[in-house]
Amino acid sequence: MFTGIIETLGKVEKLEKDGGNLNITIASDITSELKIDQSVAHNGVCLTAVAIDGDSYTVTAIEETLNKTNLDDLELGDTVNLERAMVLGARLDGHIVQGHVDQTAVCISVEEKDGSWIYSFEYDPKLNNVTIEKGSITVDGVSLTVVDSQKTSFSVAIIPYTHAHTRFHTYKAGTKVNLEFDVIGKYVARLLELRG
């Protein structure tokens, strides 16, 4: 379980295919605090640390994960948003984030607004995910509030701190991102669907 509050950025040092899996080695300033078998969210995707070597650690993304996220698009030198699992009893500064990506989206515009930014994203509606204005959404692991909700798109407003300390400063039109929709909203939508 995560909060969507990014701790730090990691840098992709090595990518190694292993059958349908991808072993991803990340250099990070939190590596010294990690243990083997610990969960870490990478662009919002919960992955398990399987090896640690100095300032770097390795995680494995299976084929299912690669098919549903932007991790298969990673290249050497890319940055990733990192968050360790939340500590029970600590403040929940973002919202409840499972680290289970629902689908990807594409950035369709970036608009600077005198010290902040409006990012708009478009996603495939066939998976029946929805946003609501002032509701929560996770973009590449970042807990955000929806500003403008449409049937196939939404916008979020980004403050300077988030812009500087996450991957948001690298996004442009065409950038593919991971989305995790609000878990409570997903359960409500499913219950309504079952009631017909």
Rank of each mutant, 00 (worst) to 15 (best):
V80P: 05
G19T: 02
D18P: 03
L22W: 00
N21L: 08
E63P: 08
G141I: 08
V130W: 05
G44S: 12
A189E: 13
S39H: 12
D55S: 14
L179A: 07
L92M: 10
V40T: 11
I159Q: 02
D124E: 12
T175P: 04
A85S: 09
G10D: 06
K176M: 12
R84I: 12
M1I: 11
K151V: 08
D78M: 13
T8R: 08
H42W: 09
K151R: 02
D55M: 10
T69E: 05
G19L: 06
S39A: 15
V177Y: 01
K17A: 15
T166S: 03
Q103C: 06
E111K: 01
D102G: 01
L191M: 15
L92W: 01
K68D: 14
M1L: 14
Y119L: 15
K35M: 15
T31C: 14
G20K: 04
L92N: 04
I6A: 11
N128Q: 15
E122Y: 05
S143C: 07
T58M: 12
G99F: 01
Y161R: 00
S56D: 09
A49Q: 08
T152I: 08
D93H: 01
L74V: 11
V59Y: 04
I118R: 07
D124Q: 12
Y161F: 08
T31D: 11
V87P: 01
H100I: 14
E112F: 02
F121K: 05
L92I: 12
T152L: 04
T31I: 11
M86V: 13
E64T: 12
E180L: 08
E111S: 06
G77E: 09
D55F: 05
H95W: 03
E64L: 08
H163N: 02
V146G: 04
E83K: 06
I62M: 14
K186S: 12
A90H: 02
N81K: 05
G141C: 09
F168L: 03
H165A: 02
S39W: 11
V147D: 04
V87E: 06
